[in-house]
Structure formats: C-alpha cells, structure tokens
Design a binder for these strands. Structure first.
Length: 499
RNA sequence: GGCGACGUAGCCAAGUGGUUAAGGCGGCGGUCUGCAAAACCGCUAUUCACCGGUUCGAAUCCGGUCGUCGCCUCCA
C-alpha cells in the first residue's frame, strides 16, 4: 500500500508502527453548521479507515472537538448565550450530520474543555524545556527554539516574515510565535492555570489529545489542506518539542478543498452549502459517491450536475443489487475475484477511489451481463455489495420481497422492492389491487387504462416495471391512503373487503 | 511577492514513457417490450490548454507561454 505523505511530498509505502494503525483526524470547532467541506474530509477519512480495516489492520481513530475558541466566544456573545451552550448545540448538530452521512463514529472524541489538565501539562513541559514562555498571562511557543519549524509546509521563518500581514505582537518575542495559552479577558470563559485564568490556544489541544489518546508517535494524521499551515505545522512543533520523539506523525494526509464556483467553500467566505441542506436534496450515498468520484487530494468542485451524476451512479449500483434473476442452470458462475483484486490495487495506490469506483461499475456491468445470459452471479453480487458497503460506506440496500404480503391475489410473483419505505398494510393492499387491475387491463389490451394506472402510481412514488413474472413494484415513497382511495374511486374500483 | 497544486470528451473524472486514452452522468442508434422502464449491444476525445525540446516512442519527462485554484490570517 502506498500513501502520499505531505511531509515528504511523495508516495510512500505504508507501514504502521505498531499492531494497530493510529489515526487522528482534525475535527470541528463547533460554532456553526457543518458544510460540504467538512463532509468531504470526514467521508474521505471514514473511507480510509474502512479500507485499512478491510486490508486487515486494526485501527484506532481519534477525532477532537475544539469546543472553546475565539470564534465560539464571539458567536456566543452575538447571540447572548454561554459559549458552552453554543458549542454544545453545534457539537450535537455535527454528530447528527456525521450519522446521516453514514460516517462511523470515532473510537474517541476528546473535547478541548475536557482535556485542560493534559493541555497545561504539555504547556508546562514546553516552558520547562525552553520552547515556550509566559507573557502577560498568556503563554507563547518560541518558534526559534524549534529547528525544524516549517518542515511540513515547506517554508522558513525568513520567507514567512516577508509575507504581507505579520504584525509584531507586544508580548511576543518573535512575530511568528503563537499562543499556547490565552489570558482571559473580562467576561470570557476561563480555566485556572499556573499562568492565571485563561483558555487553550488553537493548536495545543490537538497535540495534547493525540499524545494522550494515541501516544507520542501516530501513524496517520489527517485534515484539510488548509490546515497544513499553521495548524499542523504548529502541532508538530509543540508535540516534537514536548516529547523529543520524532516523528510525531509518520504519514500526514491532506484532502483537497471543496470549491464552490471559482473559490473555496468556507465559513469565512459565507459561500457554503450545509450538510443538512445537501441531505434535503440528495441521499448520503449520492454525496459519498460525489466525493469519492474524484481523488481526495484534488479539489472537488461542487455542482448540481456532478451530484446528479452521482445520483445516477448510486441508482445503477442499487439496481444491480436488486436483480434476482433465476440463474445457474448452465453451471457457470461469474468470478468476482479479478474485480476484487483490481479494486484493492486501486485503493492501495494512495486511495484511488475514482478508479476503485470504476471497478465497481465494471463489476455491475458484468453482473448484468451474467444475469442476462443466465450465468449465476450471486457470489459476484455479494462481492459488489460488501465492497460498496464495507469500504465505501454506501448503505442503501433495498428490501426485496418476492411474494406480496398483502392479501390480494396478484398475478405473477415479480419482486417488490422497498427503497427505504415501510408501507402500512392499508396502503399496500390498495397498491396491490391497482397492480392487479392493471394486469387485467393489459390482458384485455386496454393500454390506455393500464398506462394510466402505471403513470399515476409513478406519481405517487411506486414505479412499475413489467417483467416476464409480472410487474415489479419499486416503492420509492409510500403514498397516502387518501391518494390511493381517490385513484381507486376515479377508476371505479371497489375493494372487496373493508380493509 | 513567496510556496504548492492543476488544465484529459457536452459535464464529472482516472490514467504520469510504449498494444484500441478507464469509469460515471448525459446524448444518439439498435435488441427486448403493446408502449415504457430496466438491462444488453454499438456510437459519442486520431487526442490530452498552447508552443518548443528530449526520446525509436510522451497526455505522461524538460523549458517557456496562457489560464485556474489553494496556502502564506480563522478555516475540513
């Protein structure tokens, strides 16, 4: 397996340091709703985690929640609520979004406010070693004490000094020194510390939490490319100076940014689409496929057309999985092994999800061909299903019931497919009655009436596809009983009993 | 200004030295069907932003030009 390491700028052979892969992924600062940028990052690292497990690794996955920060305080003040309340509200919202997107929960979610002891321990350690100094109730990291500073983002102090907007802080020894601990201003939330009342600086919580929950040296640290500098650069400085252990992180993985039109989607630009808004329109599977259809290190440009294409792809994969053709008479079976191998090769090459996805589509085509020619495809179908579920986290599996449960005699036994719906018996019995009526009309060659039933049912969310075994019913929604009653009345059909 | 990434069909997007340039979406034609839908078959980039160079051979390597984006300040 090869992964692209930001630190070296190259693809490297992946070799975890211990028996389990230790992954830390930068989480959220909960002061607002999460948007598609977060979705992209967390979907990708979810898939990386799933793939590592698929390849037989044990994985320990930690993601922080930075629940105290300048932005939280600012937003809370605007709204006149306590910072902790605001953070709590958006943290809950974050978890709802993650669950809705089918992102597996991390093993640990440490909160910055819950780790003040570890944070102060690290800060004190840095002071003791001469890497940090208190000033005016705050504590700053002394960048000049860290010879490797800039190695991740490939920049040096001199070049940074020439860039535009660096102002000399009154308290800081060097303009690039950054806060480990911030003295509380009046009215701000604070914690007690050896340097007075205050709160952690932005970068220190990630160092403290990863050291506490994963040890001095992790295998993978992930996040968006916008975190490379200063956040991850500073994390390396803090952690390596504190522990003396190098490397703090063996493989740094960074995903590209979601673009909205011509620029990055971000909170500060306000050009964002929240995860909740996206999920109103598209399924989690569609959003996942949209993200996975381009490489994680490339920018991902948001467009309705691109997500619609993903919707189509998700449908294609779903349809092939609901095929239940009777096959096997020829004694041949489709072998999924070559596809599994190609899939693994693609993913082994720095998680090439677009290529791996293409393999799934190839497998889908092969299954359709096999089914059409009477070759057994059950094993291949299982392989497709497990790859898409276990590695890509695509959850949709339609419920297929081949024998109608309703107490109405229906000609033929074409499958009934429920797409995330569970109709009531009252609804089901009416639909079955309409399907039966249509079958009679078709026998009588009353195409007009038959097509009317089909198109009206489609409007109500039930698609009919004629097969040699009768009409296959695909329930995309469950209609209201009243709608069905009025359709029955319009057609002059009465139900035999009182159901 | 400094650092980095990118420019492949109508759209999205793999491929980074060598047989016919993956795959998805869309479109067109065909098979099947009463008609659809689905599925299948065929077609949809003689060409990879542009110009030079290296090479027996380049979308892939090198130089230049144009264009786009990210980071350098809070950001996934």
């Amino acid at each position: 397996m090869k992964v692209f390491n930001t630190l070296s700028g190259k693809k490297e052979t992946f070799q975890p340091q211990g028996s389990e892969v230790k992954i830390y992924v930068c989480g959220v600062t909960p002061y607002d709703e999460c948007h598609l940028g977060h979705a992209m990052s967390y979907i990708i690292f979810d898939v990386i985690r799933r793939y590592l497990r698929f390849r037989g690794y044990k994985v320990r996955y930690v993601q922080n929640v930075t629940d105290i920060d300048d932005k939280i305080i600012e937003r809370a003040n605007q709204r006149g609520v306590p910072a902790a309340e605001l953070a709590g509200q958006y943290t809950e919202s974050f978890f709802r979004d993650m669950d809705a997107l089918g992102i597996e929960r991390a093993d640990v979610y440490p909160y910055a406010t819950g780790e003040i002891d570890k944070i102060t321990e690290v800060i004190q350690g840095l002071i003791d070693k001469g890497h940090a100094y208190p000033a005016g109730g705050s504590v700053y990291f002394r960048v000049k004490s860290c010879p490797g500073y800039g190695k991740l983002s490939r920049r040096n102090l001199e070049s940074m000094m020439t860039s535009c907007s660096i102002e000399m802080g009154k308290e800081k020894e060097h303009p690039m020194d950054f806060a480990l601990w911030k003295a509380a201003k009046p009215g701000e939330p604070y914690w007690e510390s050896p340097w007075g009342q205050g709160r952690p600086g932005w970068h220190i919580e990630c160092s403290a939490m990863s050291l506490k929950y994963l040890g001095d040296s992790l295998d993978i640290h992930g996040g968006g490319q916008d975190l490379i500098f200063p956040h991850h650069e500073n994390e390396i400085a803090q952690s390596e100076c504190f522990t003396g252990v190098e490397p703090f992180v063996k493989y740094w993985l960074h995903n590209g940014m979601v673009q909205f039109g011509e620029e990055k989607m971000s909170k500060s630009l306000g050009n964002l689409i929240t995860i909740k808004d996206a999920l109103e329109k598209y399924s989690a599977d569609a959003l996942r496929v949209f993200v996975l259809s381009s490489h994680y290190r490339s920018p991902l440009t948001y467009s309705e057309a691109a997500i619609e294409a993903a919707v189509g792809g998700v449908e294609r994969l779903a349809r092939v999985l609901r095929r239940d053709d009777q096959t096997g008479g020829k004694g041949e079976a489709l072998d999924a092994e070559p596809y599994r191998k190609q899939f693994t090769e693609a993913m082994d090459d720095d998680f090439n999800t677009p290529q791996a996805l293409a393999v799934l589509f190839d497998l889908a085509s092969a299954i359709n061909q096999a089914a059409d020619s009477g070759i057994s495809f059950q094993d291949a179908k299982e392989a497709l299903f497990s790859l898409k579920r276990d590695v890509f986290g695509l959850k949709r599996r339609d419920v297929v019931i081949t024998v109608p449960t309703a107490q109405i005699e229906v000609r033929g036994f074409a499958p009934t497919v429920y797409v995330s719906v569970q109709p009531t018996p009252e609804v089901e019995v009416r639909v079955e009655r309409l399907v039966e009526e249509r079958a009679k009309c078709r026998d009588a060659k009353d195409w007009q009436r038959a097509d009317k039933i089909r198109s009206r049912l489609a409007e109500l969310g039930i698609v009919l596809e004629d097969t040699s075994r009768g009409a296959k019913r695909i329930w995309e929604r469950s209609p209201a009983v009243e709608s069905l009653n009025s359709l029955l009345a319009e057609l002059g059909i009465t139900l035999e009993d009182n159901t």
